[in-house]
Amino acid sequence: MEVKAVTEGDILIVTPVGRVDTSTAKSFEEEVMKALAQASKVAISFSEINYISSAGLRVILMAGKKVASTQGKMALINMPEKIFAVFKMSGFDKILKIVPTLEDAKALFG
């Protein structure tokens, strides 16, 4: 699947596009992991995601663990209400940093 990655200052903004389900999760994982190797401050934008399944949540979780293991920082931004509901329902909002915008992520990263 398509995953856009742009850098703003020292923050890498990763924007997956479309549906993250079982059939796209594998390539989503590869693209995200590739992007994570480039920066220690990462914002994943959900502005162009219309569906995420548990397979997709797992990739986000792995990304979070990978960033944490390298003392990096990760925030999830621009999350539509429907996607946020999925994170909330699975309890993921308790362990992942979900903030409204990139500015909030910048403030969080310090």
Partner: peptide, 8 residues
């Protein structure tokens, strides 16, 4: 709701 099992 708690978090899914096996994560943390």
């Amino acid at each position: 709701t708690g978090i899914a099992l096996g994560i943390m």
